[in-house]
């Protein structure tokens, strides 16, 4: 709170220098971890994105469901198609207030190109209990290349506030 003495530009003491060096090394380590994981890790944030419109995306998803539909199931009392595409193919998921469409089925250990886009508001793709979370925006076709490593029924929770029915927006992914 007080004005410093006239000349305050003084060399650092030994303890300060020690801490500064250690802290700086730690910061460099934190920085290096991200590129290291980018090249060596198996879990990276998808970057592949395309521009789209709700109409375009709807056409794609309807064609996709028609081609690969294998059955039906209900969520919140609404009947939804269950869709399984062959390994390696493009798979489409649609977010709209307050529904994830359709129900997707995968095979464990296989690779899929999962497209996600929103028809209206911003939504949040939160796969539970795997706990992978991605932001979903209207106008953006976000492509995640995924390999399910566990089997079972997984729930997609919407974790971006999308007005009053937000908490009812639940979807499903099945891994055989």
């Amino acid at each position: 709170m007080l004005a410093p003495e006239k000349i305050w530009w003084k060399p650092l003491g030994r303890i300060e220098k020690t801490w500064l060096t250690v802290a700086l090394v730690w910061c460099v380590f934190l920085t290096l971890m991200m590129p290291l994981w980018y090249f060596m890790g198996k879990q990276n944030v998808p970057a592949e994105t395309y521009r789209t419109t709700p109409t375009q995306y709807n056409e794609k998803i309807n064609a996709f469901v028609e081609q690969y539909k294998i059955g039906e199931d209900t969520i919140n009392g609404i009947t939804l198609p269950v869709v399984e595409a062959p390994a390696g193919s493009d798979v489409y998921l649609r977010a709209s207030t307050w529904q994830w469409y359709p129900i997707l089925q995968f095979q464990k250990g296989e690779t899929y190109r999962l497209h996600i886009s929103s028809m209206d508001l911003q939504h949040g793709f939160s796969l539970q209990p795997v706990n992978i979370n991605l932001q979903v925006l209207p106008g953006y076709d976000y492509v995640a290349t995924i390999v399910p490593t566990t089997t079972g029924e997984f729930t997609i929770v919407c974790n971006e506030f999308c007005s009053l029915g937000h908490h009812t927006m639940i979807g499903k992914i099945i891994v055989k």
Partner: peptide
């Protein structure tokens, strides 16, 4: 960080405050 349309490089440089230099400030 998990938004569509942004690259790894953009996210990594920004999220790390260009080598965590702001974190260094707090640690000081």
């Amino acid at each position: 960080l998990v938004d569509p349309g942004l690259t790894f490089a953009w996210k990594a440089v920004n999220t790390s405050y260009a080598m965590y230099l702001a974190v260094l400030g707090s640690m000081m």
